[in-house]
């Protein structure tokens, strides 16, 4: 078998993290380095103390070697997260516009660049946790609206989608099949009705 079974259903958490690492982030190098030509990007010349955008995986290598600090995204601070939380509470029918990788990115920051955050990591962590739980409650509430047709879930991150994927795919799949059976029966009834009508006409 060329692909393990668990990978046939969903992306693994490691794969989601991998995708996040492909995205761009701003760093502040403490080090100068010549331009680098890569397969999927070219990294411009690094100059110490000059901000520059690079792929996250690259930033993490420099960070590990203490050659840069990573600039946190503008939402990953106490004030913004509070605001997001507030909007999650007031707008109960939609998800706040956190970036699509907010969970993955904050996790990577906590694990690799906690010292670059402007606020105390522990506090941010608990805010993220609160947001995550609140949104999960909303997801579950939204799922009660599931039907065989469709469900709109704007602003949900891949990790959040992954969490509900096995369940909703199964349920919606079953509903679709049920609906088909019912529709077929109705069609057959109609045909029979018409036959009966014809009988009456005679």
């Amino acid at each position: 078998m060329s692909l393990p079974n668990d990978l046939k259903i969903t992306l693994s958490p490691q794969e989601v993290e991998f995708l996040t690492e492909s995205e761009m982030i701003t760093i502040l190098p403490r080090y100068s380095m010549n331009k680098l030509e890569l397969i999927t990007d070219d990294i411009p010349k690094l100059m110490a103390m000059h901000r520059i955008q690079v792929p996250l995986w690259y930033a993490l290598i420099l960070k590990q070697q203490r050659k840069c600090s990573i600039v946190p995204p503008n939402w990953l601070n106490h004030k913004s997260l509070k605001e997001f939380f507030q909007s999650e509470v007031t707008e109960l029918n939609q998800f706040s516009k956190l970036p699509h990788n907010w969970l993955e990115l904050s996790k990577i920051f906590f694990e690799n660049a906690a010292d670059d955050l402007s606020d105390e990591p522990a506090k941010l962590k608990s805010l993220i946790q609160d947001l995550k739980e609140l949104r999960l409650i909303k997801v579950k509430k939204g799922l009660s609206l599931i039907n065989e047709s469709h469900l709109q879930l704007d602003n949900l991150s891949i990790l959040e989608i992954n969490e509900i994927r096995p369940f909703v795919v199964e349920v919606m799949g079953k509903l679709t099949k049920l609906k088909q059976v019912i529709t077929n029966e109705i069609d057959e009834d109609r045909l029979e009705d018409r036959d009966n009508d014809d009988d009456l006409m005679e």
Partner: peptide, 8 residues
């Protein structure tokens, strides 16, 4: 545009 949907 930018919407996320679950559908068949």
């Amino acid at each position: 545009k930018e919407g996320i949907y679950l559908l068949r």
